[in-house]
């Protein structure tokens, strides 16, 4: 099939960017979206043009590296699918496709479609952990956890940290990302010990990074390639409020 892609090209973090259109022939429907871009890049290299820079690593939907907004939707039109697992069979001959990077103040563009997501790391560093030194753990079966509870923690823990929630949110809010981690750990007995400190620290770190605020539109949930529920944002709100109202530290 033949398609036209409009791609955001930006030479560097400080450079201005713009959309550039490329016509591409002989696209195979079995190609993944990123393979289509590889294919386009090969043709650009052949012409002596710099290839389009975009992030990807595992290409099996789990590392969270790929980050393209396709026609306004992070990871493209397929539900619960990262862009590396999106295949060209979902597009039609002659289609025009717009490809842009995640857009948020907290995700500055480094080049073309590559963005800097270190803000997400910094939020995790603020409290997304359980403070147990190696070697000091009790036997794993000493902490019984009901299947339902463990499954729910797993639902929250499934976040791949891609940032699609931020990209999809009209306000560029990171609450689904933060809510998932706060909830994952707050749902487990191991995470109870530090849950108050964690909820406050992570929310404050999120605010400090300049993400927007949640207005409960749930675009994040709809765009999340792992289908993480906004229920975890509610849980984070609860955890945060509880921590502030009942915590002993000021």
């Amino acid at each position: 099939m033949r398609i036209t892609v409009h791609v955001w090209r930006q030479a560097g973090p400080q450079e201005p960017g713009k959309m550039v259109a490329y016509d591409l022939d002989n696209v195979n429907e079995h190609m993944s979206f990123l393979e289509m871009l590889d294919f386009l890049n090969e043709s650009l290299i052949a012409k002596g043009e710099e290839p389009i820079a975009f992030d990807s690593d595992c290409r099996e939907g789990i590392c969270g590296m790929c980050s393209l907004v396709i026609d306004g939707i992070p990871h493209g039109p397929e539900k619960e699918t990262t862009v590396c697992q999106l295949h060209m069979r979902h597009f039609h001959d002659g289609q025009e496709i717009f490809i842009e990077p995640w857009r948020a103040k907290s995700f500055p563009v480094l080049k073309d479609l590559i963005i800097d997501r270190s803000s997400l790391d910094r939020i995790q560093q603020a409290g997304g952990f359980i403070s147990v030194n190696t070697g000091s753990a009790p036997d794993a079966n000493n902490i019984p956890i009901g299947k339902e509870q463990a499954d729910r923690a797993m639902d929250a823990a499934a976040c791949i940290g891609c940032g699609a929630c931020v990209a999809a949110c009209k306000n560029a809010s990171a609450m689904l990302f933060v809510g998932a981690k706060v909830s994952h750990l707050a749902l487990l007995p191991q995470g109870q010990v530090e849950k108050k400190r964690r909820a406050i620290a992570m929310v404050e770190a999120m605010d400090a990074e300049g993400f927007g605020n949640c207005t409960n539109q749930y675009e994040c949930e709809a765009a999340c390639p792992k289908g993480i529920s906004v229920e975890f944002i509610a849980k984070m709100n609860r955890e945060y409020l509880g921590a502030q109202l009942s915590g002993r530290s000021s």
Binding site: I130, S136, D139, A140, I143, G146, K147, A150
Partner: peptide, 14 residues
């Protein structure tokens, strides 16, 4: 043991 203590949500029985 270590991974469980770190909050890894391993599958559980009822």
């Amino acid at each position: 043991d270590q991974a469980t203590a770190m909050g890894v949500p391993f599958a559980r029985e009822y």
